[in-house]
């Protein structure tokens, strides 16, 4: 405990983070494993907007349509998860617990660098499953950094390598369809970090719609079942979930309606 390392405590108590011996899986028969997503983080004037779709698929079957892929990690950080939800949720939980454990046992907050490093370590622990192709997780970590008074976005690859993104990041099976659009908007129209909340939310919902249009594994807005993407914002004041009422209004005014 003198190091305040929760992962170490877990492992020394006999907990096995990933499977102790990775099962030999034929990736052609991966149908029974749930995957598929679009997640996205983009800066705006006051911080960061983080969005995740709600669908979880396994092969061609839709397993769940109300999955929450944007998880609050601490007061000013969220983790958006793509890939295998089982391992991703485990990683998010461990990260959240690690940050609290560190604060309580060491009597000081973990630094941002420490949190980012912790996430890398957890993804590395997940490596055997990721390499097998049955538990890959490529998350996006978004936070509001008080010392620099700005939002920050980091994305990770399957092996835990971390990349900081200046303006936006997207991950998951649907991300390839919207990455170009984000680049276009940010480069040739008003930069994302200068947009206010309503503009930012409008862009986010439009892009999620586009991703759902092309990627079967990404859930779009379902009017009948009233399922909207999960949208959370992070500002100096903390993490806030955008309620369905506001999302609906943005949807009606900016997604169902054209600009011209």
């Amino acid at each position: 405990m003198s190091r305040g390392d929760f992962l170490e405590l877990l492992l020394s108590s006999g907990y096995s983070f990933a499977c102790s011996s990775p099962p030999q899986v034929d990736v052609n028969h991966m149908a029974s494993i749930t995957h598929g997503t679009t997640i996205m983080a983009m800066k705006y004037k006051e911080g960061v907007i983080v969005v995740g779709d709600r669908r979880a698929v396994s092969g061609t079957a839709i397993i769940h349509d109300r999955a929450d892929k944007v998880m609050e990690i601490d007061e000013r950080s969220v983790l958006a998860i793509s890939g295998s939800p089982a391992m991703a949720v485990e990683i998010a939980r461990t990260l959240e617990h690690s940050i609290k454990y560190y604060r309580r046992s060491q009597l000081q907050d973990m630094s941002l660098e420490g949190k980012l490093r912790m996430l890398s370590r957890l993804l590395k622990e997940n490596l055997p499953l990721a390499l097998q192709g049955i538990g890959p997780v490529a998350p996006i970590f978004a936070t509001y950094d008080l010392p620099s008074d700005s939002g920050k976005i980091y994305f990770y690859d399957l092996l835990g390598a971390r990349f900081e993104s200046a303006e936006f990041a997207t991950s998951g099976s649907g991300s390839i369809w919207i990455r170009g659009a984000l680049y276009y908007l940010n480069r040739w129209e008003k930069p994302l970090s200068q947009r206010d909340l309503e503009e930012g939310l409008a862009i986010a919902l439009r892009l999620m719609d586009a991703a759902a249009e092309y990627d079967a594994a990404t859930g779009g807005y379902s009017r009948g079942s009233h399922i909207l993407p999960t949208v959370k914002i992070i500002t100096r004041d903390g993490v806030n979930a955008i309620d369905d009422g506001l999302l609906m209004r943005i949807y009606e005014e900016h997604v169902e309606t054209r600009d011209v």
Partner: peptide, 10 residues
């Protein structure tokens, strides 16, 4: 603290 966090996580 160790006991509480292990239990809370597990």
């Amino acid at each position: 603290i160790d006991a509480a966090h292990l239990e809370g996580f597990m």
